[in-house]
Simulated scan of single mutants.
Amino acid sequence: MEEKDPDGGPRIASYVAVGDSFTEGLGDEAADGSLIGWADRLAGHLAERCPQTAFSYANLAVRGTVIDEIVEGQVPRARAFRPDLVTFCAGGNDLLRPGGDPDRIADRYERAVAELVPGAGTVVLFTGFDTRGIPLLRRLRGKIATYTAHVRAIADRYGCPVVDLWSMEEVRDRRAWTDDRLHLSSYGHTHVALRAAELLAPRPPGGTTALRPAGPSRMPATRRSDDLQWACEHFVPWVGRRLFGGLPADDARPKRPDLLPF
Rank of each mutant, 00 (worst) to 15 (best):
P98R: 11
P83N: 13
P248M: 12
E72R: 12
G215V: 07
A61C: 09
R82P: 02
A90F: 13
P216F: 04
A106C: 02
H234R: 14
P102R: 00
P205I: 07
T146S: 15
R11D: 06
T87S: 10
R174Y: 14
D94Q: 09
D103H: 12
V171M: 01
V163K: 10
V113T: 07
Y109G: 02
S185P: 06
A58V: 10
I154P: 07
D20Y: 07
A145L: 14
V236G: 07
G142C: 08
G8F: 03
P237H: 02
V151D: 10
A114P: 09
E29F: 14
P10C: 05
G92Q: 04
P204V: 00
Q229S: 14
S14K: 02
L260M: 14
R77V: 10
R77P: 05
L228D: 07
L125W: 11
G215D: 12
F22M: 05
G100M: 01
G240M: 11
S217P: 04
V75I: 04
V171N: 01
D84G: 15
K255V: 02
E29K: 15
T122F: 03
V163R: 11
Q74V: 10
A112L: 07
T222H: 13
V162S: 12
G73N: 06
F81H: 06
H234D: 11
F235I: 02
L243E: 12
A193L: 00
A112P: 04
L182K: 07
L136E: 04
G8S: 03
L182D: 06
R111H: 03
Y187D: 13
A176E: 03
A221D: 03
G99C: 11
L116Y: 02
G25K: 05
V86E: 01
G8W: 01
D179Y: 06
G64F: 00
G207Q: 07
L182C: 11
A90Q: 12
N59K: 09
G206T: 13
A252C: 13
T146E: 15
V75D: 00
E2Q: 14
T131S: 06
F126P: 04
E115F: 05
D32N: 14
D156G: 15
G246V: 05
R174F: 13
W38L: 02
A153C: 06
L42S: 03
Y15I: 02
